[in-house]
């Protein structure tokens, strides 16, 4: 009885249905745990697992050196940068912009170093598959989140911030360009 003191001996063997459900549930959840290993070993999408500590000032300096070196133009005052294939690309979040605009090649792998100069931001890359589905990562000041990414489609992709970062958070947008 849920509301009353149970009979003295309530430690009784389980009924068959109960045992079955317990085993089925446990088996299902074990499979689910195991599937994480499978994801990790065989599938191309995985959580970021590499990061570095960095002082925001240091990160800004490194990002600016990177921008100066690989800059190919600018849009709305934001530098457009073509990083080397297979190399490192910096992406800097600050209230309320994403700098620079990265210009990547489809099918090539890049190590995007994402960090923030001020507060937490949310890197949200929109419409990666026919205008649908987004890819989202946390951007934390003091840490470089290393995102090893291989663009799979071409076009101009919209980037927004989806971690509340201040009163103009809903105006924080950027671009990522992928070419053949």
């Amino acid at each position: 009885m849920a509301l009353r003191v149970p009979e003295v001996v309530w430690w009784k063997p389980l009924h068959l249905v109960e045992r079955t459900w317990l085993l089925v549930s446990a088996g299902f959840l074990l499979l689910l745990s195991a599937s994480m290993v499978v994801w990790h070993a065989y599938l191309p999408v995985d959580n970021p697992g590499t990061s570095y500590k960095v002082a925001p000032e240091q990160f800004r300096a490194a990002a600016q050196a990177f921008i100066a070196q690989y800059r190919v133009g600018s849009e709305h005052g934001v530098a457009v940068v073509r990083p080397p294939e297979g190399g490192v690309a910096y992406l800097m979040a600050s209230r309320f912009q994403w700098t620079p605009i990265l210009k990547l090649k489809k099918g090539k792998t890049y190590h995007i170093y994402a960090s923030s100069l001020d507060v937490n931001h949310g890197l949200s890359l929109l419409g990666v598959f026919q205008g649908e589905f987004s890819m989202n990562f946390q951007v934390v000041p003091g840490y470089i989140n290393v995102l090893t990414v291989t663009p799979a489609s071409t076009g101009e992709f919209e980037i927004i911030c989806n971690q509340y970062c201040g009163l103009a958070h809903h105006l924080m947008s950027g671009r990522l360009i992928v070419t053949e």
């Binding site: 995985d46 959580n47 987004s134 989806n162």
Partner: peptide, 12 residues
């Protein structure tokens, strides 16, 4: 919360 599905939903 399973594996990498967070990439799809985080902060959305």
């Amino acid at each position: 919360g399973h594996g990498p599905t967070s990439i799809l939903h985080h902060n959305t």
